[in-house]
Design a protein around this nucleic acid. Structure first.
Lengths: 231, 231
DNA sequence: GGATGTGAAGTAGTTCACAGCC
DNA sequence: GGCTGTGAACTACTTCACATCC
């Protein structure tokens, strides 16, 4: 299925999670007209050490300049390549409530490489409305064979939507609903749970440990894959 | 600052990120009337190995029953304690757009221990409206000294809002805006970035590696401490 | 029997320290 | 001078294997 593309050897999971952060930082720098950035600056803003930044970037090939740092736009480009942004991924979103609207209207969510192709909801009041340039369709309409499916429904509807996506030959699902769904082997589900971030913050507040001690830091949402059949 | 509480020794960062997942799974089972759950079942649903689950839970003290598993409600309770849910955290949300509304209306976001105390926006059309039982206030109103501040504004407003929160003596910030903010030492900022999940999914799709390949894959959560000063 | 809890072993990720290059 | 890139050392996390208890 699809050309393997054999890019950089392979990147570790933590590295993959940090690259988008570096990319965003570099975009901010570029936007402000700065054309060079070094690992120390990236590290401070991303909340990691300069060494970690260099290791991560070394994995994409040597493109830094010794003594000077990284060229901002080259950095952005290399990360985009490594992450596969030069390919086009079709994205469908099911559940156009507050969250769904927030996502599709955010310049933030649909980054380069991702193209929104369809929106679904089962609320008659919502169907037919235009959101982010697309008409919201009924869930009774067929789902096109997109690359990524995003679930923004309430928890009780998540499993049914996931089933529909699997039928439509979607193999990658991003689930914002607070509900564990089961899918066949070969389909990846990533869970995004806002409350988890809040809970991690609360833990550190309660213990005085970790993150509170220092300035900038970042944290990512948890993502778990669960290729198991229904229990 | 604040009572240390000296609970369980100390939990590792990956463990802290997984506990809320286990808790949610247990809540689902309890809701369906199941009073026992074992590490294998939790692991399958959470996408981690049974051993990892047992190690994580062993860190909160021994409360499982050998041969039977964990009592669902005890499990929920123990995780709540470990995470500090028996304390009350006041939460203020700034930016009541689609995302802000999605968060405060979600049963999912404000878990036990978190209490919403104020909402702010600078859109005159929004100010005065009731959302989730609270009146949306103007940003010119003073921010009360809450425990956690949540930023749901567009990126350009994030830094100003963060400054206001720091002034209001808030030491923990959850930032949903796609913007790195700088704060004084002693304040923690956690960034939540939806597009990062999408990008991670895209990477794996592109490489055929990891999650798609099938087989259980772990959840990942990175949170790093950075004892650096804001630049 | 069956599942927990945990030393011991293994693996992955981070940090150190410095050679290499601009 | 400064910063990258990387072997080597270190640390942290996960997995194995099994003793322990219901």
């Amino acid at each position: 299925m699809a050309t393997p593309r054999l890019r950089s050897k392979k990147l570790s999971e933590p590295t993959i999670a940090r690259l988008p952060v570096y990319q965003r930082i570099a975009e901010g720098w570029l936007h402000r007209g700065v054309s060079k950035i070094d690992s120390k600056q990236i590290g401070e803003l991303a909340g990691v050490t300069a060494t970690t930044v260099r290791r991560d970037l070394a994995g994409l090939g040597s493109f830094g300049t010794r003594g000077a740092g990284y060229d901002t736009s080259v950095l952005i480009e290399r990360i985009a390549e490594a992450l596969g942004h030069d390919r086009l991924y079709d994205v469908v979103v099911v559940g156009i409530g507050n969250l769904g609207r927030a996502l599709v209207n955010s310049s933030n969510f649909l980054i380069r490489g991702a193209r929104l192709v369809a929106l679904y909801d089962n609320d008659p009041a919502m169907i037919g409305h235009e959101v982010a340039g697309l008409i919201v369709q009924s869930l009774s309409e067929p789902i096109p064979p997109a690359t990524v499916g995003v679930i923004c429904t309430p928890g009780f509807a998540a499993q049914e939507v996931a089933d529909r996506m699997v039928e439509a030959n979607i193999h990658a699902i991003l689930n914002f609903a607070p509900q564990v769904v089961t899918v066949p082997l070969g389909t990846a589900v990533h869970y995004v749970d806002f409350s988890i971030e809040l809970q991690i913050l609360m833990y550190h507040l309660n213990n005085g440990t970790g993150p509170l001690g220092g300035g900038l830091l970042h944290s990512l949402g948890i993502a778990s894959t669960n290729p198991l059949r229904a229990s």
